[in-house]
Amino acid sequence: MIATGQLIFSVAIFLFCFGALTFFTKRSAVVALMGIELMLNGVNLVLVQAGQIYKNAEGTSLVLFVTLVAAAEAALALSIFVILYRKYGTLTLENFRSLKG
Protein backbone atom coordinates (compact mmCIF):
# COMPACT_ATOMS: atom_id res chain seq x y z
CA MET A 1 0.00 0.00 0.00
CA ILE A 2 1.30 3.42 -0.72
CA ALA A 3 3.00 5.31 2.10
CA THR A 4 0.91 7.95 3.82
CA GLY A 5 3.48 10.66 2.88
CA GLN A 6 3.01 9.83 -0.80
CA LEU A 7 -0.79 9.92 -0.37
CA ILE A 8 -0.71 13.31 1.35
CA PHE A 9 1.47 14.77 -1.37
CA SER A 10 -0.85 13.56 -4.09
CA VAL A 11 -3.87 15.00 -2.23
CA ALA A 12 -1.97 18.30 -1.87
CA ILE A 13 -1.09 18.41 -5.55
CA PHE A 14 -4.68 17.51 -6.43
CA LEU A 15 -6.00 20.29 -4.18
CA PHE A 16 -3.54 22.79 -5.77
CA CYS A 17 -4.48 21.90 -9.34
CA PHE A 18 -8.18 21.75 -8.53
CA GLY A 19 -7.94 25.24 -6.98
CA ALA A 20 -6.19 26.56 -10.11
CA LEU A 21 -8.86 24.92 -12.29
CA THR A 22 -11.73 26.54 -10.35
CA PHE A 23 -9.92 29.89 -10.70
CA PHE A 24 -9.72 29.50 -14.48
CA THR A 25 -13.19 28.18 -15.18
CA LYS A 26 -15.65 29.61 -12.63
CA ARG A 27 -17.51 32.72 -13.76
CA SER A 28 -18.07 34.36 -10.40
CA ALA A 29 -15.30 36.31 -8.68
CA VAL A 30 -16.11 34.86 -5.23
CA VAL A 31 -15.71 31.29 -6.47
CA ALA A 32 -12.41 32.34 -8.05
CA LEU A 33 -11.29 33.52 -4.65
CA MET A 34 -12.32 30.16 -3.22
CA GLY A 35 -10.15 28.55 -5.87
CA ILE A 36 -7.15 30.50 -4.61
CA GLU A 37 -7.93 29.48 -1.04
CA LEU A 38 -7.95 25.85 -2.19
CA MET A 39 -4.55 26.33 -3.78
CA LEU A 40 -3.23 27.81 -0.53
CA ASN A 41 -4.60 24.83 1.42
CA GLY A 42 -2.83 22.53 -1.00
CA VAL A 43 0.40 24.39 -0.19
CA ASN A 44 -0.33 24.01 3.54
CA LEU A 45 -0.65 20.27 3.16
CA VAL A 46 2.71 20.11 1.39
CA LEU A 47 4.29 22.20 4.14
CA VAL A 48 2.89 20.06 6.95
CA GLN A 49 4.01 16.85 5.30
CA ALA A 50 7.46 18.30 4.60
CA GLY A 51 7.63 19.33 8.26
CA GLN A 52 6.89 15.71 9.16
CA ILE A 53 9.71 14.47 6.97
CA TYR A 54 12.30 16.90 8.31
CA LYS A 55 11.06 16.68 11.88
CA ASN A 56 11.49 20.42 12.54
CA ALA A 57 8.89 23.03 13.42
CA GLU A 58 9.58 25.32 10.42
CA GLY A 59 6.95 23.63 8.29
CA THR A 60 4.13 24.16 10.73
CA SER A 61 5.18 27.76 11.49
CA LEU A 62 5.10 28.40 7.73
CA VAL A 63 1.50 27.05 7.64
CA LEU A 64 0.64 29.58 10.33
CA PHE A 65 1.94 32.45 8.20
CA VAL A 66 0.17 31.14 5.09
CA THR A 67 -3.20 30.99 6.78
CA LEU A 68 -2.56 34.47 8.23
CA VAL A 69 -1.94 35.93 4.78
CA ALA A 70 -4.81 33.96 3.23
CA ALA A 71 -7.18 35.42 5.79
CA ALA A 72 -5.97 38.98 5.12
CA GLU A 73 -6.30 38.46 1.40
CA ALA A 74 -9.78 36.99 1.70
CA ALA A 75 -10.92 39.94 3.84
CA LEU A 76 -9.60 42.39 1.33
CA ALA A 77 -10.99 40.53 -1.66
CA LEU A 78 -14.44 40.26 -0.17
CA SER A 79 -14.53 43.98 0.61
CA ILE A 80 -13.58 44.75 -3.03
CA PHE A 81 -16.29 42.30 -4.18
CA VAL A 82 -18.85 44.14 -2.02
CA ILE A 83 -18.00 47.49 -3.61
CA LEU A 84 -18.07 45.89 -7.06
CA TYR A 85 -21.39 44.23 -6.41
CA ARG A 86 -22.85 47.51 -5.13
CA LYS A 87 -21.63 49.31 -8.29
CA TYR A 88 -22.09 46.63 -10.95
CA GLY A 89 -24.81 44.50 -9.47
CA THR A 90 -22.99 41.38 -10.69
CA LEU A 91 -19.76 39.65 -9.92
CA THR A 92 -19.27 37.56 -13.03
CA LEU A 93 -15.72 38.18 -14.25
CA GLU A 94 -16.80 38.27 -17.90
CA ASN A 95 -18.14 41.83 -17.79
CA PHE A 96 -15.02 43.24 -16.15
CA ARG A 97 -13.22 43.34 -19.51
CA SER A 98 -13.30 47.01 -20.43
CA LEU A 99 -9.53 47.40 -19.94
CA LYS A 100 -7.92 45.45 -22.76
CA GLY A 101 -5.81 45.85 -25.94
Binding site: A20, F23, F24, T25, A32, L93, E94, F96, R97, S98, L99, K100, G101
Partner: peptide
Protein backbone atom coordinates in the same frame (compact mmCIF):
# COMPACT_ATOMS: atom_id res chain seq x y z
CA UNK B 1 -2.27 42.81 -28.34
CA UNK B 2 -5.07 40.31 -29.12
CA UNK B 3 -3.74 38.12 -26.29
CA UNK B 4 -4.71 40.87 -23.85
CA UNK B 5 -8.41 39.94 -23.76
CA UNK B 6 -8.99 41.75 -20.51
CA UNK B 7 -10.39 38.79 -18.57
CA UNK B 8 -8.48 37.91 -15.42
CA UNK B 9 -8.84 34.23 -15.92
CA UNK B 10 -7.24 34.30 -19.36
CA UNK B 11 -4.38 36.25 -17.82
CA UNK B 12 -3.79 33.59 -15.17
CA UNK B 13 -4.04 30.82 -17.78
CA UNK B 14 -1.63 32.62 -20.09
CA UNK B 15 0.74 33.13 -17.18
CA UNK B 16 0.84 29.42 -16.45
Amino acid sequence: SIFHTGSVQSYALLML
